[in-house]
Design a protein around this nucleic acid. Structure first.
Lengths: 213, 213
DNA sequence: GAATTAATTGAGCGTACGTTTTATTAATTC
DNA sequence: GAATTAATAAAACGTACGCTCAATTAATTC
């Protein structure tokens, strides 16, 4: 046989991306085969090569688009330029919302860096550090204005990123914890971490929900 | 040819483990081949099977021993039973020291869980949660005694683990940052995170080293 | 120093991988 | 409605994988 009735390039490509994100996030890039991916899409493996020249191209495209989407999401929230604490809160809230919504892509972007060629790895790492740079700028502003009290901007930035990205490792949205609740708690922890002055006030507001688990 | 002059089972097995840890941490379990591993050891791939029945057995053994070593290291530090803050400090210091010293193994234990069979995955996850349970116990004690001020024990524990394990992602010991300096900063961040009361004092002690980066 | 055990090689088995090629059919254009 | 383009199937190519087996040599035992 050959072209199937109702086949559509755009839909097929989207289906490939979707299936690839899910499979690679679940089993890892190296463990996923092109035949497995094709089967999930409902197509022969040769058909994949009409849309993505190689397996690594597919991985790279998925990762690059995820990073670009992260930077875009960030740009759309940034304009609200208040003080450092407001900006940090916006950063954290956006980060957590974005990563919970895109668990699978985030997993891939964090785990499969070593499967990229050196040049492509560089591209992804540049996008990543552009994002992290924004956090460092916020921390620096807060440190200089006295809004924050922290030891080391670089270390604090890494610690915050690790902490708030770590949510996707264990958090499942339909449990005892809502996205809002988790975001609120992480925001509170972040503020304490940077020694924000409004620390204690923020606290006592939801003192009633404390000490779960 | 066959048995080589000076060959020794114990030494060969140790060499296989060492090479496997390095290769798997660098390239990922799925990407490393038995032939590649054998070449690194300086042996034919068939020889590997004298020491490890399958590739997955090798992975599992490496991971299990790493987790057991982590729990052992923890046991040797725990007896110093002071208040919650002291115990938390001991936990964090031990955790960071252990993970910096065993970067590669930690990477493997965090990244290659999905390559284990369900039964073996369960074994590793049990060891992991036994470790995390200790942290939660410390947090609970501190929350109840009033030494700490935190929203949610479970979330705080996960946040701390993610934060202090994240050190191995970017930290390289021979840079501007010493192991001691990083540990001190992370300890300080942890204490702020849990709302420990001695927060501010600890701070001003090394106020002179602040605001790097 | 013969018998036994330990350690390894070299060849190869069966399978599955990423990818290419060619043919074929569906949709679109004119 | 013929010509063209888009989308796929089917088959296969070359390679590399995890792993096994038989043979062979080094070390150890008695």
């Amino acid at each position: 046989m050959a072209r199937t009735a109702g086949s559509d390039g755009e839909r097929t490509e989207a289906a490939i991306r979707e299936a690839a994100v899910d499979l690679i996030a679940r089993h890892g890039y190296e463990a996923v085969t092109m035949r497995q991916l094709a089967a999930r899409v409902g197509v022969q493996s040769a058909a994949l090569y009409r849309y993505f020249p190689t397996k690594e191209d597919l991985l790279f495209i998925l990762m690059r688009e995820h990073m670009e989407a992260l930077l875009d999401a960030r740009s759309n929230v940034r304009p609200s330029c208040g003080d450092a604490e407001e900006r940090l809160a916006a950063f954290v809230e956006n980060h957590i919302a974005f990563h919970i919504e895109r668990r699978a892509q985030t997993h891939i972007s964090n785990m499969e860096l070593r499967s990229l060629s050196p040049e492509r790895l560089t591209v992804i790492l540049k996008l990543r550090s552009a994002y992290e740079k924004e956090l460092r700028a916020i921390l620096r502003e807060g440190a200089e204005s006295g809004a924050f009290d922290l030891d080391d901007i670089g270390l604090t930035a890494m610690a915050i990123i690790q902490m708030i990205t770590g949510v996707i490792v264990w958090f499942r949205p339909d449990e005892r914890l809502s996205v809002e609740g988790v975001t609120r708690t992480y925001l509170s922890m972040t503020m304490r971490l940077v020694g924000a002055s409004t620390n204690r006030e923020t606290h006592h507001v939801h003192a009633g929900t404390r000490l779960r688990a």
